[in-house]
C-alpha cells in the first residue's frame, strides 16, 4: 500500500466514524422532535448524510457510478421535502403542547375505550377536553 492510498484509507475510515455519529444524532432529532416540521428537517438532513455515506463508499470501492446514485437520492430527498411542506401546509397546525399530550395519553390508558372516546370527541384542543370533563 502506497502512502497516498494509506492517507485516503485513514481519512475514509475517520469520516465514516464521524458520519455514523452525526447520523445517530440526526435520528435522535427525528425521534424526539416535538413537532412534525422538526422531523421533516431532520429527515432532509438524514438524506444529506446518506449521500455522504454513498460518496465515501464510492471512494473506498473505486466505482464512480455511485455519484449518479447520490445525485438521484438528492433529487428524491428534495421532492420528499417539498411534498412534506405541502402536506404541512394543507394539514394545519394540530400539535398540542407537550404536557397536554402526555396528560391525555396517560389518562386515556387505564380507562375503558368507550369512556375515553366519549371524553375526547373530535377536536383535541384543551378547551374541548375541559368542556367534556364537566
Amino acid at each position: 500500500m502506497t502512502t497516498a492510498e494509506m492517507i485516503i484509507a485513514y481519512a475514509v475510515w475517520l469520516a465514516l466514524v464521524v458520519l455514523c455519529f452525526s447520523f445517530l444524532l440526526t435520528v435522535w432529532r427525528v425521534i424526539k422532535g416535538p413537532t412534525l416540521p422538526d422531523r421533516v428537517v431532520a429527515l432532509d438532513m438524514l438524506t444529506g448524510i446518506v449521500i455522504g455515506f454513498i460518496a465515501l463508499i464510492a471512494i473506498r470501492t473505486g466505482f464512480t457510478l455511485y455519484i449518479d446514485i447520490a445525485i438521484s437520492l438528492g433529487l428524491v430527498g428534495f421532492l420528499a421535502t417539498v411534498a412534506f411542506a405541502r402536506f404541512i401546509l394543507s394539514r394545519g397546525n394540530r400539535e398540542v403542547p407537550k404536557e397536554d399530550r402526555m396528560k391525555a395519553f396517560t389518562a386515556s390508558v387505564p380507562e375503558p375505550r368507550r369512556k375515553s372516546v366519549a371524553r375526547r370527541p373530535s377536536g383535541t384542543g384543551p378547551a374541548v377536553r375541559r368542556k367534556a370533563k364537566k
Partner: peptide, 25 residues
Amino acid sequence: ILLAAITALLILGGAGFALVAAIGL
C-alpha cells in the same frame, strides 16, 4: 500524495460539516 492530501482534506471537511449540522440540529 498531493492529490490524496486534497482528497483527505475534502473528506474530513465534509464529515466535519455533517457533524456540525447534526449537533446544531
